[in-house]
Design a protein around this nucleic acid. Sequence first.
DNA 1: CATATAAATTAGTGTATACTAATTGTGAAA
DNA 2: TTTCACAATTAGTATACACTAATTTATATG
Lengths: 243, 243
Amino acid sequence: MLFSAFVKMEERPVFHKGAMTDKISPTIEDYLMILFILQRDGEAVQGVRLAELLGVSPPTVTNTLKRMVRDGLVSMDSPHGPHLTDPGMAAARTVMRRHMLTEWLLSRMLSWSKVHLQAHEIEHAISDELEAALIADLNHPTTCPHGNPLPGFEDLAADWVSLVNLRPGDEVVIRRIHELAEEDSQLLHFLEEKSVVPGSPARVVEVLPFNQTVTLEVHGQAVTLGFAAAQQVFAERLAPQTA
Amino acid sequence: MLFSAFVKMEERPVFHKGAMTDKISPTIEDYLMILFILQRDGEAVQGVRLAELLGVSPPTVTNTLKRMVRDGLVSMDSPHGPHLTDPGMAAARTVMRRHMLTEWLLSRMLSWSKVHLQAHEIEHAISDELEAALIADLNHPTTCPHGNPLPGFEDLAADWVSLVNLRPGDEVVIRRIHELAEEDSQLLHFLEEKSVVPGSPARVVEVLPFNQTVTLEVHGQAVTLGFAAAQQVFAERLAPQTA
DNA sequence: CATATAAATTAGTGTATACTAATTGTGAAA
DNA sequence: TTTCACAATTAGTATACACTAATTTATATG
Ligand SMILES: [Fe+2]
Ligand SMILES: [Fe+2]
Ligand SMILES: [Fe+2]
Ligand SMILES: [Fe+2]
């Protein structure tokens, strides 16, 4: 009806999946990110670990890794388990970057503790063009809102130490909550509440290895973290004041 | 390595697909949107049309529609072809709204002619929570950047007429480029270049049915549109000045 | 009504992604 | 070295989504 009496619109696909380049699927992108993080941190890369982190069964991992090897993203040669090839690494860095840029975008309207989960969905839908626009719009960020360095800026984090490695009396600035901890929205919400977020100055009150806790004072408030959490939080140690 | 000597982080899936609610897939969401648009405009809803608009083969449509019927999103009872059930309509309105909200979000960093294509990818990754945050952040928009009304605001567009229905001398304000035309990035880029965008005042110079063209003057510049394009552009007629 | 055209569906395939159950490897401890 | 625990893989299955080729159903038109 309507105006079809006049002209018939050119019948081109209107809503269609981009099938130009054999685009990497969200699933594979998630594998790439996990592999990237484990490799970057020098952690062991074993199938079970991937299965746990990705929330799938071990056979699924075996299967998917095979496809990734077939597609040249992953290599199995090393005895240390599967690892990213050059193209795989490049793809992984791109997804990581897009995840982080998306987090900054979302942080304009969602709270710090919620952007990661949202970004994890959206990251797979960012195009080259949008990525470039985001980088410009965000003024070339070097970390994500949680302080994790963008690929290529790992040096930034070189001197940041995990809270479990601090000693009572240390004066620090909170710098980073590790990627693998970002998924725990409860933890993130707690950290946000307590101002244990990048940029916050903090003083180490006590470290109790037998109790597996670290207590900080942040903005005049005491916060006690269990080692499991504290391990994932990194801080920059301030040079002791010459007083 | 690293700190694994201390504590082993709780092994919870970190990067995983949400499998809580049987979430509607991007594919199905795209079907829902097309069905919504065709139904809203009172256009015939036939499989071939869907196949063309979605860029898939007719058997794929048959197949997918069956799944949608099975899932209660589409009904086949009516003789006028497949149509959305109440749950299907609700889901369709949600996706449409998210698409449009995403367009506004992206319009902060991408040009008007490019936001639709990008939004078409991202729309499927917007959560309830982000949607709410977007609506607030965008100050409750009632149309998309191309002037299409959000679901529930169709009345807004009731008086807007297609350019092909205008007569020489008409003074109008451009209000809307129809959804089905948004996909044509070349056309959109052309319209943007010529300021044929929502909000622009225009005067109809001539309408040549035999030539299938409409010529406008926008911002002092003449623009000639073919009927196929003009059909998809809607304008608000201004009451003639009492002069 | 008969038939040409268009639309829809069947039938048969293929890939990606997941699962469970069962089997095979592997390294470490006894 | 034997065995146990854990890791990895194989085997078999399932669903979503796509395709081509062939067939069936409608529609329309003379
Ligand atoms: Fe993140
Ligand atoms: Fe993801
Ligand atoms: Fe759009
Ligand atoms: Fe879409």
